[in-house]
Structures are given as C-alpha cells and as structure tokens.
C-alpha cells in the first residue's frame, strides 16, 4: 500500500530523477588501473552516481554541494541537454526523451544571443513558438519593464552591464511561462542588495503560480531562505545526495529577514554540519588534482 502510494506520488512529480549515473568519457586514454568499474573505461570520469532526486509539482527544491561536484550536470540531465549514462528521468510522469519541453533553464554562464537586441532576446522563445512578432514585442516590453530594463530594449548584450544581463536572462526564460524552472546559480554574480531583491522577486513570482523549481546554488543561506526542501550533494566524483532537509519556515518569506530567525539558524547549523565535511573533501581533492 505504502509503496503504491509513493510510486503514484513520484509519477505525478514534476521531475523525477531515479538512480541517475553520468560518466564523461575522457579524450585521453590513460592506462587501465585494476579496480576500474566494469563498463567504465580507464580515465573516464563518473561525475554523478546513482543519484535520485524528486521535485514535486509546485515545489521549490534547492541543491547545494561543493564546487565541481556535479550540480550543473544533474540540472543538464533534468533539462534533457545530456542523456544520463544510466537511470531514468521522468517529467510529469512521462519518460524524458530529448529536450525537456516543460522546462525553462537559467544558465550559470552568460547565455544571451549576442547578435540580438535585449528585447529580441526576451521574445526569441515566443518567436520559436510561432507567435507573431508584433504580439511578441508587446509582451517583451512588459517583461523588460518587469525586470527593470525598460528603455534598454534596443541595446545589444555587450552594451549592457553584467547585472543588467543577469536580469535579462530571467525575462527571456519566464516569458515562455514554463511549468518547471531549472536555475543554475542565477544570482551568484550579483551584489548582495540586487541579489536579495531578485530572490524576493523570484519568491513572489513563484508563489503567484507555483512553478516547480529546481534551484542550484553553493550558497546555503540562499538555499534555505528560498526553498521547501534542500538537498545536499556529496563531493565528486560519484556524487549522490547525502542529506535532505524540509524547510518548514513560514511563507511568505523575506529573504533578508528570514535569515535572522532562530528556525533558520537551527536549520543552517544542521545542514552545514553535513555540507562542511563535503566542502573540505572537495577542496582537498581540488588541491590533489
């Protein structure tokens, strides 16, 4: 009975990654060492190993982990940009083949189309969907205003500041109204004030229509203040989730204020206890490599 319940629940989940393994083949072919896993060539790098992760409908899940552990890799798998070496991905209960059409993706690095003006960048998703340019432009300008860039629509990305570009990307993704939002450290390059502003903006937006969010960050405070659930990944290689924490802090939240509450500090301490060891492990591996 319980197992049936849980399988029903995961079938309805927005994203379900089950026992995902992702191995990158190395270009160089070093000598095989005894103890290499069967089927995995010498020098191949298993970034993620048997990782399972679920995002329920309307849930905001954050993933934290040391740098280079495989957070972006997991997100790319959920997006359908890379196929896992083993394991299964389902989106709203259907196995994922190719690109995840339900998802919008905010990339870690600059992903704007450099040959299109700001407003054209915002509406390009609508153009791909066959919407008339005139109609698309109208909505594009509304979105520009929403991210505080009205009047900058004619500029090309190289004419925008770093912070302006970071604000343009969400408009480009959100105008398509995706059911699922995949976000890869979207605010990491911003100053703390702008960052908190945009985090609050994101929470407003999310509470308005409850998209399912998978949010990657290496900032534990950001993860706790935004999410319903925080997942901690182990240091690479062969990364997998090693801890999950339900964040029961009351909503609506203000990301700056929630950080002062005792509940937040307690959660932070609990999660940091686990994360700290992994970060140190990751750091030592970085030094050894």
């Amino acid at each position: 009975m319980t197992s049936m319940m849980s399988s029903l629940k995961s079938a309805a989940a927005a994203i379900n990654l089950s026992k995902i393994t992702c191995t990158f083949a190395s270009l160089a072919k070093p000598v095989a060492r005894p103890g290499d896993r069967p089927g995995v060539g010498a020098g191949d790098y298993t970034a993620v190993c048997e990782a399972s992760l679920t995002v329920a409908r309307g849930e905001f899940v954050s993933v934290v982990g040391p740098t280079g552990c495989g957070k972006s890799t997991l997100l790319n798998i959920a997006a359908g940009l890379i196929a896992p070496t083993a394991g299964e991905v389902t989106v709203f209960g259907t196995p994922l083949k190719g690109i995840n059409r339900h998802a919008g993706y905010l990339f870690q690095s600059d992903a704007l189309l450099p040959w299109m003006s700001a407003v054209d960048n915002v509406i390009v998703g609508l153009i791909f969907r066959g919407i008339r340019r005139a109609d698309a432009l109208e909505r594009g300008h509304q979105w520009l205003a929403r991210v505080g860039l009205s009047g900058h629509g004619h500029k090309y990305p190289h004419q925008l500041s770093g912070g302006m570009k970071k604000r343009l990307s969400p408009a480009q993704v959100l105008i398509n109204d995706p059911d699922i939002l995949l976000m890869d450290e979207p605010f990491s390059a911003l100053d703390i004030q702008t960052r908190q502003l945009m985090e609050n903006e994101l929470l407003d937006l999310w509470s308005a229509d409850r998209k399912s969010v998978l949010f990657i960050t290496h900032d534990l405070e950001e993860a706790i203040s935004l999410s319903d659930r925080v997942v901690v990944l182990s240091a690479g290689p062969e990364t997998r989730p090693i801890g999950e924490f339900a964040i029961t802090l009351p909503r609506p939240r203000d990301v700056a204020e929630v950080r002062m509450t005792p509940g937040f500090l307690e959660l932070h301490k609990q999660i940091w206890d686990i994360l700290k060891a992994e970060v140190q492990k990751g750091y030592r591996q970085g030094l050894a490599a």
Binding site: N76, A79, N100
Partner: peptide, 18 residues
Amino acid sequence: VSPVVLANARMLGAGRRH
C-alpha cells in the same frame, strides 16, 4: 558557436530551422 548559447536556444524551444 558557444555551446551555452546553443543549449539556451534549444531550451527556449528552437527547432533545427530556428
């Protein structure tokens, strides 16, 4: 072509002709 820009366009719904 930057792989990130390409991936972004695909995620935004671009088909082969786009």
